[in-house]
């Protein structure tokens, strides 16, 4: 079970990132759960200064951009 967290305060790019994660995880056949982290103090706790950011199993993988699905595959694998 992968724990995927999307950090962001609800911007348009955050929704896009969530969609890319969903699509990629389904394509890879992962079992996963997505949590959207919108509280600013929790986002800061990860040390992220540009949103949206992607956290997989507690590790920050990406900040401030939405990658293509091909690139997302490597981040989730």
């Amino acid at each position: 079970m992968k724990k995927i967290q999307i950090l962001g305060t609800g911007c348009a790019k955050c929704q896009k990132l969530t969609a890319v994660v969903d699509e990629t995880a389904k394509a890879l056949g992962l079992t996963y759960e997505i949590e959207k982290v919108t509280e600013i103090d929790r986002i800061m706790g990860f040390g992220v200064m540009s949103t949206p950011a992607l956290v997989v199993d507690g590790v920050v993988k990406l900040a401030g951009k939405v990658p293509a699905i091909e690139d997302m595959k490597k981040l989730l694998d």
Partner: peptide, 17 residues
Amino acid sequence: TPFCSCSAVPLFIGFVT
């Protein structure tokens, strides 16, 4: 530095803290 005003808040906090 890449900057988007949508990230102004985390950036501000990240800087001043």
